Structure formats: structure tokens, C-alpha cells
Simulated scan of single mutants.
Amino acid sequence: MKLVTYRYEEKEAVGVISPCGNYVYPVKDLGFAYDTMNELIDALSGEGLCGLQKAAEAGTEAEIPFEQVELLAPIPVPKQDMICLGINYMAHAEESARYKKEAFGGERPFAVYFSKRIGEAVKPYGEIEGHLDIVERLDYEAELAFVIGKDAKKVEEKDAAGYILGYTVINDVSAREIQTRHKQWYFGKGLDGFTPMGPWIVTADEISFPPKLGIQSRVNGELRQDSNTELLIFDIPHIIHELSQGITLKAGTIIATGTPAGVGMGFDPPKFLKAGDEIACTIEGIGTIKNVVK
């Protein structure tokens, strides 16, 4: 099942893509009277998802042709900052060290966590605000993100799958010189318009666990990143288990799992983004987001 936030006739709403893919079913017409994805996620905790699934399979006469809606980010305004993992593919760890002219020992004993501020997530086919007045080294990062479906506290790895609502695609847009200058990632990755997301949330029942999905990015049609999520150093069960030992992961929490090799800073010379560049991020079984830098 694909959950979407969309705009239709100048109104923003939450819906489900029909099984055939040709229509959007407003969740209000499926018996779920919620205005935002955050509200819907709270309602789906527990057995609510099964009820929505059955309602979507039955359909509704209030269907909207898919081509008539404008897709927004599935969670346009998250409840809190997104939790991200840094250098979580070995090949990306190597290219990152090379860019920073650091020695690379080939070991990652502990996960690197940071938060990414999202004032409003960029719609899946919207524009990336490049902040080119203060950013010269603008970069892209295709990532698999997952959404927590119910509050998670002290979760064992074997139980982690039961806490996932679904998966989406994000582009962790990054200002490399700001990252380097401030020696932390919050500012350089948290600028307004730095989080394209979508095109929807694919519910967890649609994806085998743990996910082994192809992940790619293209810039102006040129393939840059080409990997698979099975190469994560710290996988999703580890992430949920480790974080939940000391942090209650609330329903609706978005966690981005890191990016593979092939980002702009990894090339020699680097291939940073400029105004007008189009970045497409694709994850197998989920979809593609495509955004242009302005």
C-alpha cells in the first residue's frame, strides 16, 4: 500500500494509491477522518493499518485520477527532526575519508547518528533551494528512509520489523563546506529545502525485511550512485535496537539509513551541483524522486 500526501483542487489531503495505480483514494472516504499524515500514522498504530488496507482494497467512489493530483512529500512537516546515519556504506566511508584527506582504516565499529532539520520537506518533483549565495559545494545523497509506526522503546533486533510503518526515498542534500567549517552536520544538512522526500510511503508489508533494494542517483541523467541497501554497515534491526535502548522512537519518526558511494564529493575532481541540475533518486520497489536545483 502506498500512502500519499497530495494537493487536489487547492486542498491538501492524505490518501492511498489504488491497487491499479490509476487513482488516489482520500483516506477520509475510506473511513479515516484525518487531515495530515502525522495524524494518520498515530491512528494506524496497532491494528489500524489492517483496517486501512481492507478499506483500500474495497475502494471508494470518491476516487481521484492520479494524474490530477500534485504529490507532496508524504510527511511534509515531520513532528521532529529526522534521524540520520552517516557513513553507513563502506564505499562511501572510503570516499568521504579521501575527500577530507583522512586515513581510512576500513572499520566502522559504531554507527554515526545525527539529526536533520526539516522545516518542510520538498515534494518529490519539487525544487531544491540551493542557497547558492552561501553554498558552493552543494551535494546530493540518495537514501532509504523508514518511518516508525508505533512507539518503540527497548526493542530487540528480532522484533524491529514490527515497529516499521513503511519506507520512502529521500535526498539528503548537503552543503559540504558548511559541514567542514562547523565540524558537525546539523547546519550543513538542515538548510531550508534540503530534504526532498517521496514519492510516497510504501508500507512495510510490501518490502521484504531487512530490505535488499537497489539504490541509485542520477544527475542530469548521468548515473552517479548505484548500490544496494543490503550493503548497509548498520542495518535497520541494529538501528532500531540501538537507538531505542535510550530514546523512545515515537510513531512518525523518520530515520534515514545513509547513502552509498558516488556522491559529488567522491569524484576527482568533485562534481558538485549547480543551478538547473536535476537529481533523480531511485530505490527499487519504492520509486523515484526527481528535483531541480534553483
Rank of each mutant, 00 (worst) to 15 (best):
C84Y: 01
I64P: 06
L85W: 08
E39M: 13
R98F: 02
L44V: 13
L72P: 01
S45M: 14
M90L: 14
H92S: 08
E94C: 09
V27M: 09
E94Y: 07
G86Q: 04
N88D: 11
K101L: 07
M82P: 00
I64R: 09
Y99G: 00
G31A: 08
K100H: 10
F32V: 06
A97C: 12
E95N: 02
H92V: 01
I41C: 12
L40Q: 09
G86T: 05
A58I: 09
D29Q: 11
L44I: 05
L30Q: 01
L85N: 07
D35A: 15
V24T: 09
L71I: 05
K54R: 14
R98W: 03
K101G: 01
C84Q: 05
I75L: 07
Q80G: 06
R98P: 00
Q80R: 15
A58R: 14
A58H: 06
A103K: 14
K101R: 10
L30C: 03
E39D: 15
A43P: 13
V77Q: 11
E47G: 10
G51M: 07
K100R: 15
E102D: 10
G86F: 00
I64Y: 05
L49C: 09
L49E: 15
Y23A: 11
Y89Q: 08
I41R: 03
E70N: 08
E39C: 07
K28W: 00
H92T: 03
D42A: 14
G51S: 06
E39L: 13
S45K: 15
A58N: 07
I83R: 07
E47D: 15
Q68P: 00
A56D: 00
C84R: 02
I87P: 00
A33S: 13
G86C: 03
M82I: 15
E57T: 09
N38K: 07
A93L: 03
A43D: 15
N88K: 03
G46E: 13
E70P: 00
Y23I: 05
Q53R: 13
R98G: 01
D42Y: 02
P76G: 05
